[in-house]
Design a protein around this nucleic acid. Structure first.
Lengths: 224, 224
DNA sequence: TAAACATCAAACGTCTAATGTTTAAACGTG
DNA sequence: CACGTTTAAACATTAGACGTTTGATGTTTA
């Protein structure tokens, strides 16, 4: 009669279910989740409990609650929501310096964990990147460029690194970056990216790091 | 898209007051905040509103709510609480790889922004670090070591970088790190730290980066 | 005396129900 | 077609009640 299992708060359980639903794509970013009465029916809990769960996820940036309208998905993970708020208060140059740090280390690790299959994928992405640039399709260029760097992060073999890249994508490749391309910017060294893949393929960490540094130094010279 | 409502939710206002109170030290880390009935009297709102505010801050790691007991302060800022939860799910080695990335770039930037006053402070901290090691005072050693790296981050001149270091201090220099020192670990290259300061003083970014890489590679070899 | 047990008050957890506010969309008129 | 109005839906807040868990206190017992 006494062995009641230690029960975590219901609101946490509900919050976990909501976060899992977001993570697995039940609702996409920008979409509105069901109203509170619907959720309380689905989860079998009271309204206050649902609200506490939503409030918690909202404070991490996953949800945005708009009174009188509904609750919307704003991020797919906690880290991306927090990142946006933390990085918002700093200059683009400072953010780029942090990306500089991560890019360099990612390249170094990727060179150590070289893999034929990954190399192939990287070259394919670079090809897309180059084609998009020739076609003056800047949004496609930005997307391919980001996919390339994301793949390098994955190739590092450090899950935390790719997590960070996926979460910070919006911050690193925000609209601002693309808006700076018009006047004379030349695509940020296509050859530089090629030689990065070469260095990774050759399994030379320091050469890979040097290439990234060279690329980003040049890229940074185009910033105000 | 997102229009700020003329009337922000009360729970947010309450949450802001609580966070401000924590930030200005009304309750220190580890202390228990007043019970919900007291807070609702102080803020002039209902219990549900107080609970939503507390729940939001709890989800960011600032509070820990213990049912039947009370609510305790666990962190003074949002980023430090979030960082702990995000990094908790990854191995120490992965976390160290990220720190690797940041340390290297910090050193590079610090070398570019060399400053006599900063150099002096760095040498003083290294001296403390060395003294603590000789005296077998490992907690003091860890503290001095962290202060040193924090100062390098500050010397980078990138506010975001030092923000990250300050917030992630608990993660980077958690108790785990100190627990691994007993068996043969030799203080992680005192000379290596000295030569880092030398490189910074000489204004040689690449030498500084090389030194950090060398130090951390050695440090990493002591991890399981 | 010291350990094990029993009791109690305080604090958080959850539920119900009602009312106020705000929003977006539907509507209708000129 | 444009523009103000209405309206239903959704979130915000409040109030009160009862359940559960915890830590402390007091009591019993070996």
């Amino acid at each position: 009669m006494s062995k009641t299992p230690l029960r975590p708060p219901l609101s946490e359980e509900v919050g976990g279910k909501l976060q899992a639903a977001v993570a697995q794509g039940r609702w996409k970013v920008g979409e509105r989740i069901p109203a509170e009465p619907e959720l309380m029916a689905e989860m079998g809990v009271s309204r206050g409990t649902v609200r506490e769960a939503i409030k918690a996820l909202a404070s991490t940036g996953i949800f945005e609650v708009r009174r009188g309208d509904g609750t919307y998905v704003r991020a797919t993970s906690e880290i991306s929501g927090t990142a946006q708020r933390v990085f918002r208060d700093h200059s683009d140059q400072d953010v780029l310096q942090v990306r500089f740090a991560l890019d360099t280390q990612s390249a170094r690790l990727a060179a150590k964990a070289a893999d034929a299959k990954v190399i192939e994928k990287l070259r394919a992405l670079l090809s897309q990147r180059s084609e998009a640039w020739k076609a003056r399709d800047y949004p496609a260029w930005a997307q391919a460029d980001w996919k390339f760097h994301l793949e390098v992060a994955r190739a590092s073999g450090v899950p935390l690194m790719s997590d960070i890249y996926e979460s910070f994508g919006d911050v690193f490749h925000g609209t601002k970056m693309v808006q700076r391309l018009s006047d004379g910017f030349d695509g940020c060294l296509h050859e530089g990216h090629e030689s990065l893949v070469d260095a990774i393929q050759a399994g030379d960490p320091e050469a890979a790091a040097r290439t990234v540094i060279k690329n980003l130094d040049y890229c940074m010279s185009w910033m105000p």
